[in-house]
């Protein structure tokens, strides 16, 4: 139920539990969960991981269970939203672009980035809660209930949350790409057909440009040009790729760690120590004087 029971806004896990038309089927089996072992970090401060090597297997089991609980609904919802936004905006912006490859490339970059960022922002807190609970269960089941194991749980969640998150992000990216191609299949095909017919006229999407007169009445500098998009225009969509690259780099380095470990298994009898993810650093700044004014302006719009 969208409104939850008890605490008014309770049960609100960023939309995961919401009674939302956008939710997919939580039992969706289309997402294959990767082996999480190469992504896990075992903090050297946790003595347990040295004294009880089997405990690393419990952690893998607990984290896998936590990810499995969350990944399906998060990926489905993120992909569905990203898909619709991408389809609508790409169709509009590429209405006079004849090259379906340019369109496909832009659509891929956009949908991947929207889906993975939505997945990240949606899954992080639920994943933290779920990982903590799952780890506690498995520690208790193995007879560890003291304050030291609580500290081990906290450290393990803190060390692994971001990397495990990227696994969910990556699943969202992959699903988003295959679904956007399906959604734009007809749009790609009409461009191919237009080229094959050799009409010798610039391409334009009748569905977009016949519905609304606005695009063609825009001021000249802003109007779409008959010869398709120019490089600075394509850059808008290429910029969507920058955040993706950061995710891929994280995944790639986790995977190369695994390869190194696989080559020298004797060096790491357990799962080895991963690397810590560096937090986002930001510069502090000020400048709220203008902001406050417009906050009041926003409110004035609602004063009746």
């Amino acid at each position: 139920d969208a409104l939850g029971r008890g605490s008014a806004a309770g049960g609100l896990n960023q939309g995961i539990n919401a009674d939302s038309g956008l939710n997919g089927n939580p039992d969706d089996l289309s997402i294959v969960l990767p082996n999480l072992a190469p992504y896990l970090t075992f903090n050297p401060q946790v003595i347990l991981y040295t004294t009880q090597p089997a405990s690393k297997r419990w952690v893998l089991q607990a984290v896998t269970a936590a990810v499995r609980e969350i990944i399906g609904p998060v990926v489905d919802r993120s992909v569905q939203i990203a898909l619709i936004s991408t389809r609508e905006l790409i169709t509009k912006d590429f209405a006079m672009e004849a090259d379906e490859n340019k369109m496909r490339k832009a659509a891929h970059l956009m949908v991947q980035n929207l889906a993975s960022n939505l997945a990240m922002v949606t899954c992080k807190e639920p994943l933290r809660i779920s990982m903590t609970a799952s780890l506690r269960n498995i520690f208790v089941a193995n007879g560890f209930t003291d304050a030291i194991s609580e500290q081990a749980i906290l450290l393990t969640v803190a060390d692994n949350l971001d990397l495990v998150c990227t696994v969910i992000e990556k699943a969202a990216m992959e699903k988003a790409v295959s679904e956007i191609d399906e959604a734009l299949l007809a749009a790609y095909a009409t461009r191919v057909k237009h080229r094959e017919q050799r009409i010798n006229q610039p391409y334009f999407d009748v569905n977009v440009l016949s519905v609304s007169q606005y695009p063609l009445t825009l001021p000249e500098p802003l109007r779409l040009k008959p010869n398709g998009l120019q490089q600075p225009q394509m850059r808008v969509y290429e910029d969507f790729g920058h955040i993706n690259r950061a995710i891929n780099n994280q995944i790639a380095s986790a995977e190369s760690d695994r390869q190194v470990r696989n080559m020298r298994p004797e060096a790491n009898p357990g799962y080895g120590y991963g690397h810590n993810v560096t937090g986002t650093t930001t510069t502090q700044g000020s400048g709220f004087d203008t902001a406050q004014v417009s906050a009041h302006q926003i409110l004035e719009k609602f004063a009746q």
Binding site: L89, N113, N117, L118, L222, L229, Q233, F240
Partner: peptide, 22 residues
């Protein structure tokens, strides 16, 4: 809305602060 790329740019601005939320 109708100018090329504007709404996509606004979306980029929005999602680029997601990592700063939590």
């Amino acid at each position: 809305w109708h100018s090329y790329g504007v709404v996509s740019i606004l979306l980029q601005e929005i999602i680029s602060v997601y990592p700063l939320l939590s």
